[in-house]
Write a protein that binds this DNA or RNA. Structure first.
Lengths: 217, 217
DNA sequence: ATCAAGTAACTGACTCGTCAGTTACTCTAG
DNA sequence: CTAGAGTAACTGACGAGTCAGTTACTTGAT
């Protein structure tokens, strides 16, 4: 909101940026299929034709927005993670970043969860899912590898288990954030703490290497 | 597959059933928006017009399929859960049912995960999400309530925590199943055991009522 | 048994609205 | 006075939904 509504003609780059932002909002709120190019143009108070001068097609517009979202979130995640030393702090940081992101970029968050399981063609969003998973896996495995008390064999077993853990944690966190967004009466700290605790338990169990006996079956 | 390909004209009810099944497959594989009524008709080797004699609109067809899927899965879940006594066995049963369902009804599973976060209008799928969540919550709370060693106040605290746990478990399990489906090289037992273990840890922690000190922040 | 009358299953070819993308023009800042 | 920011009005394709008719099956009177 640098300039007020009075502003009409903009330089190319600024307009493009604005359009990307508006498109993010529309895609995030309505979803890809229910968003028309006219919606985006109207929301930007601009004609559809101008929109087409900046983005050659709806798909490319979507891909562009995707790329920006992925870049932004990846940046935030890696910055937060790299700022911490031990992996407990790193996991906590990731969770915090995700809650923050969902809070102050609701359109972007909505964009992500709406299209995460959908696009494989564009590759950008599939990339996000994989990057998130890879980040988790990386954290888990770094922790294991740097532990000198483990034999290589035990380490291999744990890498295997870690890979199975990643989707559990990943799904738990995303679901937790989404749930919290839909329940504004719940305190954020509480939801965040619960997620951290839950994840940490799984991680801790992995670390101790012990295996609970199966209670059933 | 009661009758072979030679069969052409079918009685109304059987045809309707067949069309529902075919539509489930198409919606599951392509998703709502990328599925055209002609696709469904073609897959059923039938004209589009006939399809419209059974279902008045695309939306109603989708709603009908949704209802069937919800009914089926809900039925399986409650049957499995009610067959077990203690809540450990019940959770294990739920997880097993979900893995089973994803295995032998891949189209239905795909249908669910594709549209779970999407439709609020029809209500059927949102209903599924809520029902799953409610089932989990029910299991958690029943366990707590039946524990005579708890004061009402402690119980209330735990109900609160249980509600926060539900989305974590829910997301973890769905994500775990989806991940396993995409990694056929992984043994199912392993994935299932890991999910059970992970969930159980969270539940166990809730049961013990103790609160881990926060490692970070 | 048999065939005409009746009905339910089924189809090909249409309409009509919608929406991505284009064209031919106007306006204004520098 | 001109380049490029901007638009209104258009086109073409696609896809949901319809309709006028055809084909297969059932029934009951002879």
């Amino acid at each position: 909101m640098t300039d007020t509504a009075g502003r009409r003609r903009m330089p190319h780059a600024r307009r493009r940026e604005q359009l990307r932002g508006v498109a993010l909002g529309e895609f995030g709120r309505r979803g890809y299929h229910d968003t028309q190019m006219e919606h985006v143009a109207a929301a930007a108070q601009v004609s559809k034709a101008l929109l087409y001068q900046h983005f050659p097609s709806k798909d490319e517009l979507f891909a562009d927005v995707s790329a920006a979202v992925v870049a932004e979130l990846t940046e935030r995640l890696s910055a937060a993670v790299l700022a911490e030393q031990d992996s407990a702090a790193r996991i906590a940081a990731m969770i915090r970043v995700l809650f923050d992101y969902a809070t102050d970029e609701p359109d972007a968050w909505s964009f992500i969860v709406r299209h995460l399981d959908k696009f494989q063609g564009g590759g950008e969003l599939r990339g996000l899912r994989d990057r998130l998973g890879a980040s988790f896996a990386g954290l888990l495995l770094v922790r294991r590898r740097s532990d000198p008390t483990l034999s290589p064999a035990a380490l291999a077993v744990n890498e295997r288990r870690a890979r199975l853990l990643v989707p559990l944690m990943y799904g738990a966190i995303l679901s937790s954030v989404s749930w919290w967004l839909e329940h504004p009466d719940t305190a954020r700290d509480e939801a965040e703490a619960m997620a951290l605790e839950f994840i940490w338990l799984g991680l801790d169990r992995l670390r101790s290497g012990e295996r609970m006996e199966h209670h059933v079956r």
